[in-house]
Each structure stands twice: as structure tokens, then as C-alpha cells.
């Protein structure tokens, strides 16, 4: 089953963190768990469609202390595996916030 994860956190300049993160990503990529990943601008654009009229509102809606965002599309056997991977992810990046949505097939 596939999950889309998004996360926000503080910017870091810690070299060791980058190396550890790189290793983590590489392991997940080669095992096929990580299907796609990338950074994300936190400036959000919100769309609302009401009675056929689409309203577009430009964010930011995230709090200012969170300065970097990222997403990952992963393929795992169970929700628990996705949770475990997310836990490992935050162990590396430190404080932050994340969301996870199951992709329906």
C-alpha cells in the first residue's frame, strides 16, 4: 500500500544530519520503499470551489517557525511500517510536524 507523507521542520545546517538523511534515503530508494521524494515550498495555495466559482488564496498557512517542507511517496506492507519509517525520519531531522495519507488504489 502506498502513503503520501508531508512534513515541515526547521532548517538545519548540520552536516552529519545531511549524511545520515542521505543514507536513509538511499536505503529506502534501493529497497523500493521510497517511490518519489522532494522538497516543498511552504507557501500554500488554497483552492475553494463553491457553486462553480473557484477561489484561489495564496498562503503561507504554515507557522513561521517551520521553514522547510518535504514530501515522500512510499510503498510499504502496512500502515505500521509507514509509521515506523516516519518515526525514523523524525529521529534524524529532529522536531517538526508530519502528515500521512494512504493512497487508495
Amino acid at each position: 500500500m502506498r502513503f503520501l507523507m508531508t512534513s515541515t521542520g526547521k532548517q538545519s545546517t548540520d552536516e552529519a544530519l545531511y549524511i545520515e538523511m542521505g543514507k536513509f534515503m538511499e536505503e529506502l530508494t534501493s529497497s523500493g520503499v521510497l517511490l518519489a521524494t522532494g522538497g516543498m515550498d511552504l507557501g500554500t495555495t488554497l483552492f475553494e470551489a463553491v457553486d462553480g466559482t473557484v477561489t484561489v488564496t495564496d498562503g503561507p498557512f504554515a507557522e513561521a517557525r517551520e521553514v522547510v517542507g518535504g514530501f515522500a511517496l512510499i510503498e510499504v506492507r502496512s500502515k505500521e511500517e509507514a509509521v515506523e519509517l516516519t518515526r525514523r525520519f523524525f529521529k534524524i531531522i529532529g522536531d517538526g510536524e508530519g502528515r500521512m495519507h494512504r493512497i487508495l488504489d
Binding site: 506492507r77 502496512s78 505500521e80 511500517e81 509509521v83 515506523e84
Partner: peptide, 10 residues
């Protein structure tokens, strides 16, 4: 138990 199973599979 399910969480432990996930760790175990990894």
C-alpha cells in the same frame, strides 16, 4: 504488537 511486527520485518 503490530508496530513491533513492522520493526521486525525491517
Amino acid at each position: 504488537h503490530r508496530a513491533i511486527d513492522a520493526v521486525w520485518k525491517f
